[in-house]
Design a protein around this nucleic acid. Structure first.
Lengths: 143, 143
DNA sequence: CCCACTAGGTTGGATTTTCCAACTAGCATG
DNA sequence: CATGCTAGTTGGAAAATCCAACCTAGTGGG
């Protein structure tokens, strides 16, 4: 009777990396162009010490890079690496879901535009057939 | 000097609901067809008491429903509501990112098929132009 | 010179959350 | 009557988080 049989899974791995509290909000700020520690603290509300550990972890895994933007006194800011930028779809989908299901009577708290000129409304599609991916359309392949 | 200016944001709202530890893994199990408490504990590794509080919260917000599947002794299982099923894209994108960036030499730990017959590889596209959404192509609209 | 201010952190200690193992209820089965 | 199944609940230890204050290394004002 083995009582644990924890599933090896890319979802779990991704969450191990970016699923802790504040991490995705910090990344959101970087995507929005706020690269400084103080700005991230202000806009996320994260405790400064926690934010430090989150940023260090993201840096250690190559999602962000710390760069000196000023000598004397030495000041650092954070920038997304290409790997970090590849998380854009994750944030986009989280925002999309919140926009659709958690918005108040005034609609979503912020809107975004895509480079095509339209208000950004994103959806997840199958690369092969182009159809929107729905829960009922996905099956685990035989291992 | 107002020191806090926390951003109202759909990402934050979504994470408030499903961003705590274990929550998304529990939802993953429901998507995979494991509806029972014991199965979720086994496959996620979540502590039983924590899992209980997570499931209660999801239920309170209408993402899942608890249903009696057996009288004497009364036993309940959990099922996704339509609202819960609408989270599929979130899990899909998290898995996609992990598949692509955290897989070992043997590739991703599990693969999925789409109803179109192909191995599921999903991406996030703009509803308007159909292009894949990249970090650099998104700008916040003027408030 | 002294003070205030900036910015990216660190520190100590209180608070909260999580974790874990053991236990319960209510019934079925051998 | 003992054992097992399943969805929890409980108490206490361990860990993570939170918070306010502090630090460093400078700049600008009076």
């Amino acid at each position: 009777m083995q009582s644990t049989d924890v599933r090896e899974c890319s979802i779990a791995r991704t969450l191990d990396l970016v699923g802790e509290r504040w991490t995705l909000l910090a990344l959101r700020e970087l995507f929005l162009g706020n690269h400084r520690f103080e700005a991230i603290v202000r806009h996320t509300g994260a405790p400064r010490d926690i934010l430090t550990t989150r940023l260090r972890k993201l840096e250690a895994h190559g999602l962000i890079a710390r760069s000196l933007y000023q000598e004397r006194p030495r000041r650092y800011e954070y920038r997304l690496t290409p790997l970090g930028e590849s998380l854009a779809p994750v944030l986009t989908v989280l925002r999309e879901w919140g926009d659709e299901h958690l918005a108040g009577p005034d609609g979503p708290p912020a809107t975004f535009t895509h480079s095509c000129g339209a208000k950004l409304e994103a959806h997840v599609t199958c690369r092969h057939c182009g159809e929107e991916v729905k829960a009922s359309a996905v099956r685990q392949a035989a291992p």
